[in-house]
């Protein structure tokens, strides 16, 4: 089991630990478009690049290439993992032209799940969780209906959408949404009814404290959204 009891130096809420365990296990499973070994390779690439984020890209140690992934997927895992402020539509279009929009979105979902868990471990002062064992099996290759163009680089859900855009950014791959946003609910937002309140009583920190952290992390990453 990942993130076992006793892993953390101070107690972590059970719902948060459970979300981390479930999402971490998801990384190793066959996804919608990538196999388990491919998903673990994506996570490994993102992690290895991100830990060198203070080095310029051209001087990072990348070892010998042995990933079971297309070249553009390798590049995407690294760049989303370590250099998110420098992505643009032209670059994304180039990656998507080679691997496809669904593969790109699933890759992003694996990277963001990995980075969030790794950053949490760094904040807690513990080693990164070992990557999960890759499971055998084939991707489901299910593309959802109801996708459309709202000006993002990838299609997103457009039917009956009333929530924040970021919550539908990965909707081309619903499994990726479930994996990452399970952690979002446990580590930030709580249930939808909690998130809508500006005064929080479901978290130990006051909401302005949480949002100050959110704003600072976003700004440090030069994230406009």
């Amino acid at each position: 089991m990942s993130f076992p009891d006793g892993r953390f130096p101070v107690p972590v809420r059970e719902d948060m630990a459970t979300a981390l365990r479930r999402s971490w296990a998801d990384i190793g499973r066959p996804g919608t478009w990538w196999t388990g070994p491919e998903r673990v390779a994506i996570a490994a690439l993102a992690r290895a690049e991100r830990v060198q984020r203070n080095e310029p890209p051209w001087s990072r140690d990348r070892g010998e290439p042995n990933e079971p992934l297309p070249e553009k997927a390798v590049e995407a895992a690294r760049r989303i993992g370590a250099d998110p402020a420098h992505l643009d539509r032209e670059w994304a279009n180039g990656v998507i032209a080679e691997i496809g929009d669904s593969h790109y979105v699933e890759l992003a979902s694996v990277v963001v799940t990995t980075v969030a868990a790794d950053a949490f471990c760094e904040a807690m002062g513990i080693d990164h969780e070992p990557l999960p064992e890759a499971e055998a099996g084939e991707p489901t290759c299910e593309r959802p209906d109801g996708m459309g163009d709202i000006g993002a680089w990838v299609p997103v859900q457009v039917i009956d959408w009333k929530r924040a855009n970021v919550a539908r950014a990965l909707s081309l791959v619903p499994e990726g949404v479930r994996t990452f946003f399970r952690m979002v609910v446990a580590m930030y937002s709580g249930a939808a009814t909690d998130f809508e309140k500006m005064v929080w009583d479901h978290r130990p920190l006051a909401r302005p404290q949480v949002e100050l952290l959110a704003a600072r992390v976003s700004a440090l990453n030069q994230c406009f959204y």
Partner: peptide
């Protein structure tokens, strides 16, 4: 941790 994922 989670906002390092959300920004991405």
């Amino acid at each position: 941790g989670i906002f390092n994922g959300l920004v991405r």
